[in-house]
């Protein structure tokens, strides 16, 4: 399958994520959209990794080209998991304090 298909899919996912973050006010949905963007990047990383491996293995089938891309993905997943735990905790605290998960109530940062 052509690499373009993966790129289109990843771009679409990423854009959905961006638009979701920009337009929605619900913190949980924003959170999910952030995850969507992360996963769009993960998808790309895996796709390119595979592509590099295939082109390089034609010349040398013991090659390890492209493996670093896959390793990045694991890093991102680990970080995302950590982020989720912290992020959700923040959202829970937010709900406890202001009884809402609407981010527009969170405008005290400017002070």
């Amino acid at each position: 399958m052509s690499i373009n298909n993966y790129i289109f899919l990843a771009s679409a996912l990423f854009s959905i994520g961006v638009i979701g973050v920009l337009t929605r006010r619900n913190a949980i949905i924003i959170f999910m959209c952030v995850e969507l963007m992360l996963n769009a990047v993960n998808l790309l990383l895996v796709a390119f990794s595979k592509m590099h491996y295939l082109t390089a293995s034609v010349i040398d089938h013991t090659t390890k080209a492209g493996t670093d891309g896959q390793i990045f993905v694991f890093f991102i997943m680990v970080v995302a998991a950590a982020e989720v735990s912290v992020g959700l905790a923040i959202i829970v605290m937010m709900y406890r304090n202001i009884h809402s998960v609407d981010v527009n109530f969170l405008n005290r940062l400017k002070h």
Partner: peptide, 14 residues
């Protein structure tokens, strides 16, 4: 620019 609106910050970032 520093309005305190999370959305605005993200928009600027994007």
């Amino acid at each position: 620019l520093q309005s305190g609106q999370v959305g605005a910050y993200i928009l600027m970032m994007v």
